[in-house]
Design a protein around this nucleic acid. Structure first.
Lengths: 228, 228
DNA sequence: GTCTATAACTAGATAGAC
DNA sequence: GTCTATCTAGTTATAGAC
């Protein structure tokens, strides 16, 4: 038996034309649907994809679980949309920066800023991506194979810039580009675990701090011990 | 109906005295039990705590799910033991280093090495800790409250060393100690996601690389752009 | 210490009324 | 677009035989 419905929307957007699926992106979009995806993303982020039940998602939206299936054909479809929305946005931003003519250091710095900046709009999605990646990839079909492909593409972008920076002498050459990329990537995304938009630092300050340490190092300039 | 049992251990360690519970650590220990915990940890790490069923754990051990409950009173108890074993080990190592008289830079460097080094013995536990932390903390009782307490203690250790390093001039003073700690912590632990012990780099090389970048920076020494 | 059998429950998903 | 009602399958955990 389902819990009693606590109606919030007793008739708003009642009979709007909702045949506008399959537009913009390939998946299908509507404001109602987007809202449900957002609610679900927050729950997925907080408790994990599997620990979140369709009943909880529905409850949060003020409807019953069965009604969710009018919008989505499965729970997987919801998380799919959460992740795709984020990945599409961030890869598009990366491409925009790379199409410019910045030097490696400023391009990399800009990419770091894009990463931290995406915490504002995509914090939940980033958390889900990290926590539930291995589970989603362990599913029998290849539905989430695009995760690996997106990761590969992004890795190429970063590694190329690091190598370019080494070639022109902006970055030290005794670091491994791929390892360095992973280090940066991990540090940026993992921030989603504890970052709160209403906290005392914003994503810009976070990026500034990170760029400072990674580019120039934690050691004070006037010190022994540095083996450089 | 359970799958057919594929007996692996047809009588080994058959009638060993197994009343030696509640020793060493508080939880309870036996080789058999430890082995089961290890198997479970690998599964938890691969698929997530909730996606891993007690049937799978039992299957992996060559027994049936009911038999698991001779060793553990619940699935939660198993993951509890996975996490405690790791946390006890790593905090003990931190304390050992801090009880020495090293300068901040070498202490911090040693702590980084402990972190990466723990990937060898605790890779699965570290993965579980990261992926399932928020779920375990969301459980009704406070059973996993020690996670927060351990985190707090470790944070104090790190932040103190960073501040000490700033005080003696080993570390630059224009970075936030707490933020820097989080950055380091996250980067070290998150490595568990992709690190493979049989890969082409070991945990020592990983630590070397990380220390190099974080202490001395990615920028080449002879370059403009560094605002220091 | 393991197995057999099953209880008690919860999950995702569906069909059709409104 | 939502609700009611329900199906099916899978989950943790238990009881008692061996």
């Amino acid at each position: 038996m389902e819990p009693v419905s606590q109606r919030k929307n007793s008739g708003a957007t009642s009979a709007t034309t909702r045949a506008r699926r399959a537009v913009a992106n390939g998946a299908g979009a509507s404001e109602r649907r987007d809202h449900l995806v957002k609610l679900a993303a927050e729950l997925f982020a907080r408790k994990g994809f599997q620990a979140t039940t369709v009943r909880e998602i529905a409850l949060e939206a003020g409807i019953l679980s069965g009604s969710l299936y009018h919008h989505f054909d499965s729970k997987e479809t919801i998380v799919d949309e959460v992740l795709r929305t984020f990945l599409d946005d961030v890869t598009a931003r990366y491409r925009a920066v790379l199409s410019g003519d910045g030097d490696p250091r400023s391009v990399l710095s800009e990419m770091v800023r894009i990463g931290f900046g995406s915490l504002d709009a995509h914090r939940a999605a980033i958390t889900v991506m990290q926590n539930d990646w291995s589970y989603l990839r362990s599913l029998p079909d290849d539905r989430f194979g695009y995760l690996d492909r997106a990761e590969d593409e992004v890795e190429r972008m970063w590694v190329e810039q690091i190598q370019r920076g080494q070639a022109v002498g902006q970055f030290r050459s005794d670091v491994d580009p791929k390892l360095t990329y992973r280090m940066i990537r991990d540090t940026v995304w993992v921030t989603a675990r504890w970052f709160r938009p209403d906290g005392h630092l914003d994503t810009g300050a976070l990026a500034d701090h990170f760029v400072k340490v990674v580019f120039d190092g934690l050691a004070s300039g006037d010190e022994t011990g540095g083996s450089r």
